[in-house]
Structure formats: C-alpha cells, structure tokens
Design a protein around this nucleic acid. Structure first.
Lengths: 214, 214
DNA sequence: CCTACCGATCGGTAGG
DNA sequence: CCTACCGATCGGTAGG
C-alpha cells in the first residue's frame, strides 16, 4: 500500500525506522528470544501492538533488522578490503575491529538460537545473508592474499580461505560478547585484541615465515 | 538431610541422576532459556513439579549440570595434556576433537545468555568453573609448548598462551554448534576440522616455521 | 496507531 | 513424588 506522493510518508515511515533502530540495538545485544516485543516498542516510543501495524510479526521484524545490519556490514568489509595500499594483515585487523564494534551477531549465538526460535524459511534467509555478505567478502581477502603470494598456498589438510574466515569470525564474535559487561573478562589482552588475533592468524599463513615481526 | 544407611538411596538418587542426565543433554543442545522445566521432567520420566523436590529451582539445576559437565571436561583435557609421547599439535587436535563432541557449551552462547537469565552469583560461579577447568588446562598446554621450544616465545603485541586458548575455544565452540543439524553447514571442510584448526593455530606459533608439513 | 484483551506457556507452590 | 493450580509474561488480535 504505497502512500500518495503529497504525504511525504513522514510519521509512519519515521516510526518504522525508529522501531528498526531500537530493535537492532536490542536484538544484537541480547539475541532474538530474550528481546520482547514490548521492549522494542518501549524503546521506539510506541505501544506494543503498534509494532504489528508496521511488521506482520516478531520474526519478520527480526529478519528485516538482520538484513539491514548485514548489508551494512558487507559494505564496510568491502570498503576495507579495497584498500590495496594497506597490507593484508592491516586490513584483516580493520575487519576484525569493525566486526567487533558493530556487534555483528555471533554465528554461534544465532545458529544455536535460530534453530529453535525461527521458522525454517527464516533460517535459510539468515544463513544466506550471512554467507553472501559476511563470509564471502572476508574469504575473498584471504584468497587475494594467496594469489598475491603473501599467504602460503592452501592444501587439503592444511588450511583453506574459508576455514580462515571461520576462525576469524569465531574469534571476533566471542570478542564482541566479551565487551566490557558485568563479569570480569576472562581474556584481557594488553594491547588491541584485533591486532593480536590478526597476528596469530597471519603467522599461521605466511608463505615465508621469517621470525620477524610485522 | 542424609538418608539412613539401610536405605541405599536407590530410587530418589537414581531419579536425581536421571534428571541431571536429561538436563545435561537438553541444556547443552539448546541453551538455558530454550529448555523448559517441563521438557527436562518429561525426558527424565517424572512430572514437572518433581524437579523441585530434587533441586530448589531451574538455575540451581543448570549450574549443577554445568559443574558436572565442566569437571568431566577438565579431566579429559588433563588426560590428553599428559600424553607427552604425542606431539603438541596432536594433543591440541585431540583436545579440539573432545570439546567438539562433548558439546562443551560455547563461551559466547552462555556468556550472552547467562548475562540476562542467570543471577550474578550464578554467573560468577559459571565463569570460575570455566576459567579453572577449561581455560587453565588448555593454556597450560600452550605454555608447555613455549617452554619446550616448540612454540615461539610470546611477545606483548604478538601472541599469548591465553589468547591462543581463546582462539582455540572460539573455533571449537562454533564447530560444535555447526554439528550436522538442519541448515546446511557453511564451512564443510574436507578432512577433520579439528586437524585443520590445530594446523592453522600451530603454524601461527611455530618457533622455526619451515615451510614443511607436520 | 491506541486500549483492551486472549490463549499459551513459563517457573514455581500448595497440599497431600 | 503427584494433582491441581497460580501469577507473570509472552506473541499476537479485535475493534476502533
């Protein structure tokens, strides 16, 4: 139902955006199930049933939030990946840093959760988004590293770009959840954890592993 | 209230064990919140209120499950770590394989979840268990590798045994959740993923990184 | 977009 | 250890 052009879709569209913003923050922080529709409504400045004016149900709202968040993440990753003037380790560091602060939802958290809370179609959709927008562009960075000779060529039992992406995302996701909440962190690194992870990852991959530092 | 010695605490103790076993399976698979007390009861062959005869509440039951599971994990890790006839990479592979199949709950999943569902005291208890029984023994393996010269000495901005443990656990936890459920896996490695992860980890750490295989 | 409300389900208790 | 039940809360709908 498109609105007539004279009405600049101000109010209703603004509210919709407010709901999406509030829902994004809440879902990324607490996960799907832990966030109630009433929380989202309150954070958006509307009453709970108003959500169902803008979205058919909670799952659809969640998937829309996930879609926008994931698309933004893809744009950021591709922007970083395109900085060919910077070294591969540096770009990986930046990717990790971005993912960490963008609260990109942990694969594990969501795969665990979505398995029980979301419809099969929703799961497929979320999984596809994740593959296309997160996994693929990061894997491309590793593949570029192989082709440029910076990274050692992968072998079947050794490493593969996709497994490297898996490792990077796993570490990053857990880093994000660590982020300064109540319980004292278990890991507490001295420096920048993104740098440390990238360093550990790279030194497992360098073609000519001289003992030097980056 | 201890039972008199003549009664070999058969029935009531057996039921208690059955509840713990059922709860372990369910909590490890689905997480704390997704599992209802009614599910646990049904899987144990009792009615739901019977749980409250054996445990004061759901949280206490969960923490008891977590305690037993974590203690078993520690025993397994220390058993593997003590196999000095086997190489460090091999022992790490075995640790990863064990963690993967024991469904050791993902740090991220639980840290995310426990933050909102469990009392502060419960969180502290879970966190301490995790630190002592999982993080510490794995970190000890890495430290041993440093002292024996197999691993390169850690530097502040480089790597640290604890961060290596973090990376290992992150990857393993996500591997475990991947485990052959409905949604097609995103990562699908050819060989043994435990081996690949160990390989990637090690080659980031070897003291003399010759280009050879293990 | 709100008020009012519903059925389902949750963790937990009463009373035996 | 069971039957019966409760208050709270959830996602979602009716009707305007």
């Amino acid at each position: 139902m498109p609105r007539e052009p004279s009405t600049p879709r101000t109010d209703t569209e603004e509210t919709r955006r407010a709901i999406l913003r509030a829902a994004e923050r809440l879902f990324m922080e607490q996960g799907y199930r832990a966030v109630t529709t009433r929380q989202v409504a309150e954070a958006s400045g509307v009453k709970q049933p108003a959500l169902y004016y803008h979205f058919p149900d909670k799952e659809t709202l969640f998937l829309e939030v996930l879609r926008e968040h994931t698309l933004a993440t893809r744009a950021a990753i591709e922007r970083i990946a395109a900085r060919h003037t910077e070294s591969l380790p540096e770009r990986l560091r930046q990717v990790i840093r971005y993912l960490r602060h963008s609260q990109q939802p942990n694969m594990a958290i969501y795969q665990q959760e979505l398995r029980h809370e979301i419809s099969p179609q929703g799961r497929v959709q979320a999984s596809e988004m994740f593959r296309t927008c997160i996994v693929a562009p990061i894997t491309a960075i590793f593949e570029e590293g192989v082709q440029s000779g910076v990274l050692r060529p992968p072998a079947a039992s050794d490493w593969q770009p996709r497994m490297a992406t898996f490792l990077l995302l796993s570490a990053t996701a857990n880093l994000a959840t660590q982020g300064g909440h109540s319980t004292e962190p278990i890991w507490t690194s001295d420096g920048d954890p993104a740098a440390t992870i990238a360093q550990m990852l790279i030194y497992g991959l360098v073609a000519r592993p001289s003992g030097s530092q980056i």
